[in-house]
Design a protein around this nucleic acid. Sequence first.
DNA 1: CATCTCTACCCAATCGGTATCCTCGAGTCA
DNA 2: TGACTCGAGGATACCGATTGGGTAGAGATG
Lengths: 334, 334
Amino acid sequence: MTTSLSDIAERAGVSIKTVSGALHGGSARMSEQTRLRIKEIAEELGYVTNLAARGMRQGWMPLIGVVADDLITSPFATEIIRGLDGAARAADMAVFAMTLGGGRDVASVLEEVRRFRPRAIAYAAMYHKTVSLPAEFAETVGVMINCREANDKVTSLVPDEIGAAHEITSYLIEAGRRNIAFINLPGLLAGELREAGFRRALEEAGLDAGRARVLPAVRRAIYSDRAHSLVLSHVTALMDGPERPDAILCGNDRVAMEVYAALRRVGAQIPDDVAVASFDNQVDIASRLDPPLTTMALPHRAMGRLAADILLAENAAPGEVRKLAFQLVERSSV
Amino acid sequence: MTTSLSDIAERAGVSIKTVSGALHGGSARMSEQTRLRIKEIAEELGYVTNLAARGMRQGWMPLIGVVADDLITSPFATEIIRGLDGAARAADMAVFAMTLGGGRDVASVLEEVRRFRPRAIAYAAMYHKTVSLPAEFAETVGVMINCREANDKVTSLVPDEIGAAHEITSYLIEAGRRNIAFINLPGLLAGELREAGFRRALEEAGLDAGRARVLPAVRRAIYSDRAHSLVLSHVTALMDGPERPDAILCGNDRVAMEVYAALRRVGAQIPDDVAVASFDNQVDIASRLDPPLTTMALPHRAMGRLAADILLAENAAPGEVRKLAFQLVERSSV
DNA sequence: CATCTCTACCCAATCGGTATCCTCGAGTCA
DNA sequence: TGACTCGAGGATACCGATTGGGTAGAGATG
């Protein structure tokens, strides 16, 4: 049997309430002596607070529920959780994640989470997208992380794709690069927005955005000649063409990895001949490439942290969309 | 305010107990008609069970606590969770993970988990290793996943590294390969065990295990000439040497990726000249290599599932070490 | 008719904290 | 001296679900 407050109270010869106050009450009125004695006894008896009991009384458990798009798998998702967890922990809360997938729909997963009476619930997407949450959940879910709620009924936290593309492009321009090609991810919201930021930065620098080359990568391929061929042919065409680029911006680090291989094959030096920059800061890749890759780090941890802050402060502004800045990670590919 | 059983009871004109029975009691004695009516009302009122209340009554929450080595990050860890989650869900339980790291020690994380009164607790490691759990937690933690408890006080679930290496090696031999080199991971328990299995399979096939070449890979490098060089030089030396191997077994898929690159560079065809096989089945890599890689899939999901089964059945045999079989995934690199 | 057995429920205790309302004695102040 | 405050802590009512111990009424049985 686990020890409860009453066991401690009995042993200490005080009331349960006094024990509760001594152990949890921040500044309950009682002599420091009593408090200390009670804490000692609690320690001795191996007391562990029963959060289910407290939770029942308060009406909620010290939990932040997270409904995730898909099983938490990528390093990015991990960062979101890490951010949430850090902020939650500071408030003596824990993060409790459940995932969709496997035929489960939002409604049932949400109910599963709600059974535990979390203080607040967030919805997290694996990659930046627009999610349409059934209207009846707009009040249940406090924050959308890494996705925007289609009907703007919920506060949404998303990466500032446009700003990031603008920043990295400007960075390349400041480094003296004038002819920047962009091998982008096709079919993704992030790619679309990044392209916009890219073009705007070019325009602001007085470069001809209309003639900028934006080419699609393909999202599969490691060392496969077939799949590789698209990025390879892009790079080859660029480097053999009349206007050799002096910089290539990549849709993400994975694309950059392929671009590195392609540049190596055509005999171009990074960064002397061509600078390479990218998005994501997937550390496994970016820091191990040779030379290490300069890339814009996704603000996943910041989104997690902010989400927890908003949820715990209960000051979500429904419908607001907050764009979080990427962080430029300078390595040596520019 | 959230609705409770008493709200439903009032509305339905029955007692709370009847409502409880109708909603949760599998086969409580009551007319089907009453049960249906109560369910309807519950639905209408948007009733969601309060697990904190139930948990308090029962003494435990329907949770399986997991203390993880490090923040759940790799696809492997995900598989463990998936396995746990599947089995837990079947018992109407949820998985609740907390991670070490960030200066937290096992004792404090364990207490944090215990506050939620989980039904059972597992300890999961990110990669196969030996973990020494302080003796006082041997009873708290029911199962060790992907690691072996140093003092054998706890049931441990680990991958059968020896068996897997034996199986894949035998598979290569059956495919007619006679001269198999092994580029292994250095400094890891898994690598050590795999080498043992590798040698045993050679011996059993009557091949000279003493002369088998087992070489260390290095665990960093993507497209970096420097870091690559070790695997590359191994492969080059093997292929240029007097006894060209007709198969290369790799410590993991990542090593295999480098071996592919090296073989491509020296102009060898996979699998015609050299078969390649590996461990892990990191799908991202294995299925995208060209040709797709034959590899032994780690039994992470099975470990998770079995862990949950053991914990829920409460039939852990403290000190037992169960080795789970890898699964051969045949693709076309052999 | 008395008794027995079901069926279909109800009553009330209980789990472990938290919070509200009291009490009690000692000191304070006019 | 009487009214008051204040510090320290007691008694007890919750929170919402589960559950052991009933019980009233209908039908069956002897």
